[in-house]
């Protein structure tokens, strides 16, 4: 199915008669991408479910004010990223977890999840990613899984392209070391 262009979605949304249709098009184009982006950050399906709904409610409320300074999908990604990071920060505060131990809790969530059917390598990759600092994990996810360009990640995170390249490279080195370590098995 041919995906509708963002410009067409925005044009339809600006017209009150076709606004609902535009939002339906936007949902069918982006809801799965945004869900997976959030899911890989917060790990738990129920948390991701709540957050993806919050994100699209915000998109609905603010799309009218959206100025085409940035691309539509980077704008939605930015909302999703901010919501996910805010959620993780609140989780740290609520459970009184130090910053470096939040990955431990996400690790437990990953192991206990009913909705993870990856094999040993996939589990090991997810665990390797959870050893990364939050920002590196975010950048690795967007580059590796979402296959976004550095310029797009820069627009979403507000970090320079150079810094993103360095972060991604460091993240890959850490993950590689983790994956090649035969002592870590599942």
């Amino acid at each position: 199915m041919k995906q509708v262009e963002d410009s067409e979605i925005l044009e339809k949304f600006s017209n009150e008669k076709t606004r609902n249709e535009a939002f339906n098009l936007l949902l069918s184009k982006y809801q799965q991408k945004i869900y997976w982006h959030i899911r890989r950050l917060v790990i738990d399906h129920d948390d991701a479910d709540d957050l993806v709904q919050d994100v699209f409610i915000k998109v609905w409320k603010n799309l009218e004010k959206f100025r085409s300074d940035s691309q539509l999908y980077t704008w939605i990604y930015r909302i999703a990223t901010n919501e996910s990071i805010t959620f993780l920060n609140k989780k740290k505060q609520r459970n009184n977890i130090p910053l470096d131990e939040v990955s431990g809790e996400l690790n437990e969530t990953l192991v206990a999840s009913d909705y993870f059917n990856g094999d040993k390598i996939q589990m090991k990759l997810q665990k390797a990613m959870l050893t990364l600092p939050e920002k590196q994990r975010l950048i690795f996810n967007m580059k590796y899984f979402d296959e976004l360009k550095y310029e797009e990640i820069s627009e979403i995170t507000g970090t320079s392209v150079g810094a993103l390249k360095a972060s991604f490279h460091i993240a890959v080195k850490k993950i590689e070391a983790f994956m090649l370590n035969d002592d870590i098995n599942f």
């Binding site: 869900y35 997976w36 899911r39 890989r40 399906h45 999840s113 909705y115 993870f116 059917n117 990856g118 094999d119 390598i121 996939q122 589990m123 990759l125 997810q126 899984f145």
Partner: peptide
């Protein structure tokens, strides 16, 4: 070796 969803399901 790792699918796009990284092993997660819904």
């Amino acid at each position: 070796t790792v699918p796009a969803n990284g092993g997660y399901t819904v």
